[in-house]
Design a protein around this nucleic acid. Structure first.
Length: 117
DNA sequence: AACCTGACTTGCA
DNA sequence: ATGCAAGCCAGGT
């Protein structure tokens, strides 16, 4: 009866928008990087790039969530917010085999993570 | 319920 | 190429 739950067409349980971000980021293969917008799109929220970064900031699972593999759309890293600094992050990515265009920019065209490929 | 902030993205000058 | 501003969405207070 009632049958009026209405207001429940939400997209599946969002048991934590953040949890979803970690799930995607954890799947990023080594030697590749993804942008916040890309991770957001993979989780079904191409407009939530900001929340992706916010979720990584919360990073409840350091060591499990390779937040260092997530960079801006330009391939540049935000200095001061990384776990040890954009510099350390750049070295880490480079050590994984990621190509760099500049000391502060990653070559997305070469190291962009292509999900499903 | 409302307001504010925030690891973003894109466009224009 | 660099700098500034506006837009969008979710979480916290």
């Amino acid at each position: 009866m009632d049958a009026h739950p209405a207001t429940k067409e939400s997209p599946r349980r969002d048991e934590g928008f953040f949890e979803r971000v970690y799930e995607v980021v954890e799947q990023i293969p080594r030697g590749c990087v993804a942008t916040y917008g890309q991770v957001a799109a993979l989780m079904g929220a191409p407009r939530c790039a900001r929340q992706v970064g916010y979720a990584l900031h919360a990073n409840p699972r350091p060591g499990i969530v390779p937040c260092h593999r997530v960079v801006f759309a330009d391939g540049h890293i935000c200095e001061g917010f990384a776990f040890g600094g954009a510099e350390a992050q750049r070295e880490l990515l480079e050590a994984e085999g990621v190509a760099f265009k500049d000391d502060t920019h990653v070559d997305m065209k070469r190291s962009r993570w292509q999900a499903g490929l």
